[in-house]
């Protein structure tokens, strides 16, 4: 049964790279690109052809990452989420990842549907949706920094960081 956590870790890394990679793409590249594209009238290229595809892989990669992470924790799942049995550090990473997953499905995606026109919305609703989606996305970039620290070092390198 050692194959399950080993394969789960592989999948967790691949999906996680896709999720956080696209999150960084949105925040470090697309936000600024969209501003410039709106100014020269070419924003539709991004909003019509790039953003919907990026969001599709982004939101489902988030789900796969979380599920693979849960499989990787296996019997330590409850200990991690309750900070028991020396699992507090990886548990913080797991909680941060879970909050980020909620931000994706509870805030970013529902508001992006209004922004991109998949769901009818007035101009006022779109402006509000744009602000909420932007802040949720930026909050996820902020949370990704401690999340990756605790994921990378919370268990495998806990001797270095936490003296365990």
């Amino acid at each position: 049964m050692d194959y399950v956590p080993a394969l789960a870790r592989w999948l967790h890394f691949m999906a996680g790279i896709m999720w956080i990679g696209l999150l960084y793409y949105f925040n470090f590249v697309q936000v600024a690109a969209l501003k410039a594209a709106t100014a020269d009238g070419t924003a539709a290229g991004i909003t019509k052809h790039v953003a919907p595809r990026a969001l599709l892989f982004f939101r489902w990669a988030a789900v796969v990452t979380w599920l693979a992470g849960a499989a990787l924790l296996g019997g330590q799942f409850v200990n991690a989420f309750t900070f028991q049995g020396g699992m507090a550090a990886i548990g913080v990473g797991a909680w941060l990842g879970t909050i980020m997953l909620f931000n994706v499905w509870g805030l970013i995606w529902p508001n992006q549907k209004k922004i991109l026109g998949f769901k009818p919305a007035t101009d006022e609703e779109k402006a509000k949706a744009r602000r909420v989606a932007f802040l949720a996305s930026r909050a996820n970039v902020m949370l990704s920094i401690p999340m990756l620290f605790f994921m990378a070092g919370g268990l495998s390198h806990r001797g270095v960081f936490f003296g365990m």
Binding site: N27, A88, V92, V141, M142, F149, F162
Partner: peptide, 30 residues
Amino acid sequence: MKNPLDSLWGTVISGLILTLILYFVVKSIL
């Protein structure tokens, strides 16, 4: 006060500060 999440640098610095805070919180638990 300006929201730090409005700028990329503000976001990254906030993330680093949060990492430091959580690190010491976890260290006190373990």
